[in-house]
Design a protein around this nucleic acid. Structure first.
Length: 270
DNA sequence: AAATTCTCCTGAAGGC
DNA sequence: TGCCTTCAGGAGAATT
């Protein structure tokens, strides 16, 4: 499932192929996603130049001359640069057509989204209330600590709350908490400022490391096999129930927090 | 207001 | 081998 590093890696992979190009149009084969793909998308985008490919949280933003396409990959979405006229397969929802290539969205589980807005994209309802970027300047331990004040729910839920900080999915939440030595179930408001400094640091660390790994496996996006970046990265606890903790060799435990699988070491995390 | 639950969907994995 | 069940998960919406 694409987490922030996969989305950023995708952005870096597709950008050189399409930025500055003028869209010839779009082919929508399947409108059903989280929300329906906007009607008339082909006519909307045809003839517009793609000015910039950026990212906010896990949303990819394709800024055109008269508006912005927001693309979310959900759990199973992928974007590929392909030669024009490449035959489509099952679950290929959408092609954006450029003179020398096409950008294809495939999303088997349809948790993704494609939306169009003419308004300033930062004002879009889906983006308006989002918290800081984890790799940006305003995200740090002080921010987490104030966001946690008075909250009694698990710290894992706090760092996965998009209003607090964006882009921390289940895998990297588990990893960052392990590296911080913080128990995922600990009440947010009962964690010292100093520990939040460390947590902010490990969140940055796991996300940047994954982006770097993605970058190394993604030299040529056209030939990329679509492997998610976290396969390249060594995961210390996620998906490792019963296996030895990298620190102390005790078995990694699994439980559910906020409906999500949570992995941790009961000795190394407090 | 904060916290929890529900919901979308389908591929993968596990059980028999 | 194959059918059936269960699970996973991003994040907005609904509910408590």
């Amino acid at each position: 499932m694409p987490e922030l590093p996969e989305v950023e890696t995708t952005r870096r992979g597709i950008r050189p192929h399409i930025e500055g190009q003028t869209l010839l149009g779009a082919v929508v084969r399947q409108r059903r996603l989280r929300w329906p793909v906007p009607a008339g998308l082909d006519r909307t985008v045809a003839g517009q130049r793609l000015l910039h490919v950026s990212r906010r949280a896990k949303y990819l933003l394709l800024e055109l001359e008269q508006g912005t396409l927001l693309i979310h990959l959900g759990m199973s979405g992928s974007l590929r640069i392909l030669p024009p006229e490449t035959p489509a397969g099952a679950h290929d929802h959408l092609d954006l057509l450029f003179p020398d290539c096409l950008l294809r969205l495939r999303d088997p589980r349809r948790f993704g989204a494609v939306l169009w807005t003419r308004e300033p994209v930062a004002d879009h309802p889906l983006l308006r209330h989002l918290g800081p970027e984890p790799l940006g300047d305003t995200f740090d331990g002080a921010w987490l600590h104030q966001a946690a004040a008075g909250r009694r729910s698990a710290v894992k839920n706090l760092i996965m709350d998009g209003r607090v900080v964006v882009g921390v999915g289940n895998i990297y939440a588990n990893e960052a908490l392990f590296l911080s030595g913080i128990l995922p179930s600990r009440a947010s408001g009962r964690i010292a400022r100093q520990r939040y400094d460390r947590l902010a640091g490990t969140i940055r660390q796991v996300l940047s490391a994954a982006i770097e790994q993605g970058g190394t496996t993604l030299r040529d996006f056209q030939q990329e096999d679509g492997r998610p970046g976290y396969f390249a990265q060594e995961l210390r606890v996620y998906g490792r129930e019963g296996q030895a903790c990298p620190n102390c060799d005790a078995p990694i435990l699994q439980r559910r927090i906020g409906q999500r699988s949570t992995f941790y070491c009961r000795y190394c995390q407090r």
